[in-house]
Computed example of a mutant assay.
Amino acid sequence: MHVITLNGFPRNEIYILKSLIAWPHVYVHIRKPTVSEKDYERILSVFSLEERLRLIAHQFSTLSRENGVPHLHLSTAGRNQVAINEQRLYTSTSTHSWGEFNALGPGFKMAFVSPVFPSISKKGYGVDHCLPLLGRTNRFTSAIALGGINADRLQRMDSHTFNDFALCGGLWEASDPIREARDCYESQTEWINKKVTF
């Protein structure tokens, strides 16, 4: 299971993230596109060196590596700007269609594929263009379902198409984020047991 931070600072965010990262096979994506480098470093500093091994940084790649975060995420736009030979530094990337996902080279360990369902945190996004649940041909890269994921919708997804899933709005807009995460975690034990190895 992957957890993605919101751009702002939700109440009890660090407590929630540290609680979830203690569970086996949970990875936390630190995605804060508008924060300063200093604030990003401050966020990383609240995690122990062991916890940082399961963080995936979406910004400030040099700073993140210097702070013990080995996994980096490359956005779609970033992927088009980074030379192919430099992409090997990145663990994950973002895609928005099966065609885009299937065209990835074997260098990426995993990639978000979105939107699977209408977004919960970005109102209106994905309403008219959700991905079909079939269409994957790339087996080199682990497919991480993203977009509108919550415990109810997980039941409608095919664990043979996706290797794992990511929570964002479904987690942060829940009345009890940790309970929502646990419901997702426990309802898809067969996915969680398919550990994404880096």
Rank of each mutant, 00 (worst) to 15 (best):
V3T: 03
I4V: 12
T5D: 07
R11D: 14
R11T: 14
E13F: 00
Y15K: 13
L17R: 02
S19K: 11
I21T: 07
A22I: 03
Y27M: 10
K32E: 06
E37H: 05
E37L: 08
D39G: 14
D39K: 12
E41T: 00
L44I: 15
S48R: 01
L49S: 13
E50I: 06
R52P: 05
L53N: 08
L53Q: 14
H58T: 03
S61M: 06
S61A: 15
L63G: 01
N67M: 15
G68P: 08
H71Q: 05
L72F: 00
S75V: 08
R79N: 11
N80P: 01
L89K: 10
L89Q: 13
T91L: 15
T91R: 11
T93G: 08
S94V: 04
T95D: 00
G105V: 06
P106F: 14
P115E: 04
K123L: 14
G126H: 02
D128Q: 08
D128R: 05
D128G: 08
L131S: 02
R136P: 13
T141C: 09
S142V: 09
I144L: 14
N150V: 05
N150K: 03
D152S: 07
R153H: 09
R153S: 05
L154W: 10
D158C: 04
D164G: 03
L167W: 11
G170F: 02
E173W: 00
I178G: 07
A181N: 10
K194I: 10
K194A: 13
K195T: 15
V196T: 07
T197F: 12
